[in-house]
Amino acid sequence: MKLGYYPGCSLKGGSREYKESVVALCKRFDITLVEVPDWNCCGATAAHNLNKELSLSLPARILAQAEKAGFEEILVPCAACYNRLMVTAHEMKTQPALGQRVKEIIGMEVSGKVRILNVIQLIEKYLLDKLELKMHRPFDYRAACYYGCLLVRPSNILQFDRPEDPETMDKVIRKIGGQPVEWEFKVECCGAGMSVSRTDLVAKLSGKVIDNAVYRGAEVIIVACPMCHSNLDMRRPDINKYLEKKTDIPVLYITQAMGLAVGISEKELGLHRHFVPVRLPEKGLLTDMPGEELEHQQKEG
């Protein structure tokens, strides 16, 4: 099947491995991702800080482009893009006058009928029911699922998962054979867009997240947001300095974890692009997982 897809800038740049893993995972499940034509940046954290109309117009243009291309549903893997697109769709719907103004600014029509899927919703909706057939080896690790802010808040608009103690990623991890750990910093902020301008604060906030994950015995942190990933991964030297200890817990995208479980190579999933080396102990490697064979049989039959 084909699915509309808005990668956003991070996935084309600094979070290339997220894109690679999303595409590879979808391919494994026979989903072809089709990019929204001539898409632009959503404005991310910068636009709403400086100008409200701009912060709505940029995502509105993306929605308009998706609509024009005839997509009913688009996958938006980046949590920041997902958040901005959802907020824009909501504000345009609930405040018609503002919606009209935004449409005038972008000079395009937005009816608001395009459904926006985040990556966990994609997994729940299209991948999980076929998972058993595709399983290669269980992702048998103690994982701290880190949701951050943008996937779950503002909860009244996003309406995705429980805002204080979300559980959807934990469920996915359990399905691929992992053990989600109970921890306290699932939805704490990592410092978000201040990675460059106030690295000191990012080191502190992300440091607390890493610290709690390690304290709760996690072997790996699972994320679904490029900003969370770059703060927890790329900023690890600053984090370790703040924590005054060397932490080497790797940070994986949920798509990478799932990719490993269904037998996609580490290279295809972009694990080599991480700053904190992904060294997961080899365990639970089950060569006799029925998945591939079953799938094979089914295709033949």
């Binding site: 084309k12 898409w39 940046c41 404005g43 991310a44 910068a46 800080n49 201040m194 301008s197």
Partner: peptide
């Protein structure tokens, strides 16, 4: 610095349509 970053971010989009890191 925070404002400089936000502005640089928007400048980048303004020039090219997408963020050029």
């Amino acid at each position: 610095n925070i404002i400089a970053f936000h502005k640089a971010f928007l400048d980048s989009i303004d020039y090219t349509g997408r963020l050029y890191e």
